[in-house]
Design a protein around this nucleic acid. Structure first.
Lengths: 187, 187
DNA sequence: AACTCCATGTAAGGAGTTACATGATTGA
DNA sequence: TCAATCATGTAACTCCTTACATGGAGTT
């Protein structure tokens, strides 16, 4: 039940059309809650029907921009959701599953895959660090800013974790004998 | 497409019935890939139909234990899956979403929720550390063992990250003024 | 008229969740 | 025999993903 609230938050920050929301879910908000345009359009329809948002007066025909804004009921729903208890979901990480499977059936080719993930996480980390430099300079620290900075810090911390873990794991694999779990090694 | 492979791995480690699998998905494997018994039974049926596993000769009536084991085709499918490229999924963490929403609409009651999550992650971390002490003593380090240890290390590292991040975030909230984002404060 | 974007959708299916149903076994 | 427990399922629903469809606007 997070998508509607993600959309409410995005619309509160700035009233938008479906496509604009989709773009924003590809960057800032999407860094910790991704969504496709199909999900977004469907959810916009539901939110409008529930009276939490409304579309601004616009030509209602198909293929035309439709801009949405949050109604007071929508803001109230969001405020209520923010403090509502929700247990953290257990980890669900296919890569760990694959490592466990590799422990049983052998991991031919797994090292390459770990290296690929390492590169991806390094790139993501660099992107976050760039955003941090641009958007969170030491001056201007009001509360809103600080909370948003904490969110970004979580992204940075998680990427740092994965980078470190992948490096250690790769070095463990290499200790097992050069190329032990590589596609070109002897499984 | 991870659940079938999680089940194949579990069955390779030890042939089991649906309920036994469910129990194991509540602990070891479940720490990074959870599943309910409904998912497991459905998937066991599919895997059997695809010829990747088979049920050992047993009374076929309802309410009777049915033990499964992996067939060669199942092992081959798992080997193939292990090295197959799969991009890491972007983060999807409702708590970060709520923090971002709090930055916009205020976070009355959020501090309590962060404290609750902190306690949960501390408990999970303690559990992992206990498992590490029990299952991974310094002696006996064959390859299988090391890979499984790396998996556990990921769990430990992630929990350590969340504990640290939550503590920092709570201290940031407190700097904003005592009780700023508490339910009993002035949001 | 054909092509390319922009923008909003529909359709179908997979995966996970929640609630409930049914049969076998065991113990009081 | 009654209840509890073990064990295997069904049903209905939500959410997400992938592929495709449709309409408008501007260009050539």
């Amino acid at each position: 039940m997070s998508l509607p609230h993600a959309i409410l938050t995005a619309l509160l920050e700035k009233p938008s059309s479906g496509l604009e929301l989709t773009r924003r879910f590809d960057k800032s908000i999407g860094f910790f809650w991704s969504a496709t345009h199909q999900q977004i359009y469907r959810e916009l329809g539901r939110l409008e029907q529930s009276g939490l948002i409304r579309s601004l007066p616009q030509p209602p025909s198909r293929g035309q921009r439709k801009e949405y804004e949050v109604l007071p009921a929508g803001r109230a729903a969001l405020v209520e959701w923010v403090a509502q208890p929700q247990d953290p979901k257990p980890i669900r990480e296919p890569l760990l599953l694959r490592l466990r499977a590799a422990a049983t059936v052998g991991g031919r080719g797994l090292a390459e895959e770990l290296e690929r993930h390492l590169a991806l996480h390094e790139r993501q980390l660099a992107e976050y660090l760039e955003i941090e430099q641009d958007d969170f300079p030491v001056e201007r620290v009001d509360e809103e800013n600080r909370l948003q900075h904490r969110v970004l810090s979580a992204g940075i911390g998680l990427e740092r974790f994965w980078v470190a873990w992948l490096r250690e794991t790769l070095s463990v694999l290499r200790e097992e004998g050069p190329g032990a779990l590589r596609a070109d090694g002897r499984g």
